[in-house]
């Protein structure tokens, strides 16, 4: 894992620490992943296979859940995960979700 970092031992995502280019390979849990797109610093990759509804763990805590099944190595972002945060008082929609 040269370009990825696991921030907390319990995390099921890895974080891009150096920009990934198409064709780059990384070995995650003895499985070789070939990337087909550019991924910038700070983006998330599934560290293990995840099922729809599984909790995404980063910093050792839940940061949302998967909205579809995800294979290890998949880029995780707005298109395949969602926030599970329900504020105890009403916030504006735009305040909670990035557009």
């Amino acid at each position: 894992m040269n370009k990825l970092i696991q921030i907390h031992p319990n995390d099921n995502v890895l974080i891009v620490r150096q920009r990934i280019e198409p064709g780059d390979t990384e070995t995650i849990h003895e499985k070789e992943i070939v990337f087909d797109k550019t991924l910038g610093l700070g983006h998330k990759i599934a560290a293990v296979d995840l099922r729809k509804g599984d909790i995404i763990i980063k910093y050792g805590v839940p940061i949302g859940s998967a909205t579809i099944d995800l294979n290890a190595g998949t880029h995780i972002h707005l298109h395949n995960m969602k926030s599970d945060y329900i504020p105890t008082y009403t916030l504006d929609e735009e305040f909670i979700h990035a557009k």
Binding site: G40, G42, I63, G64, H77, L78, M81, S83, Y85
Partner: peptide, 9 residues
């Protein structure tokens, strides 16, 4: 979000 952050949490 550009920086890879997906949720408020």
């Amino acid at each position: 979000a550009d920086g890879g952050l997906t949720t408020i949490e």
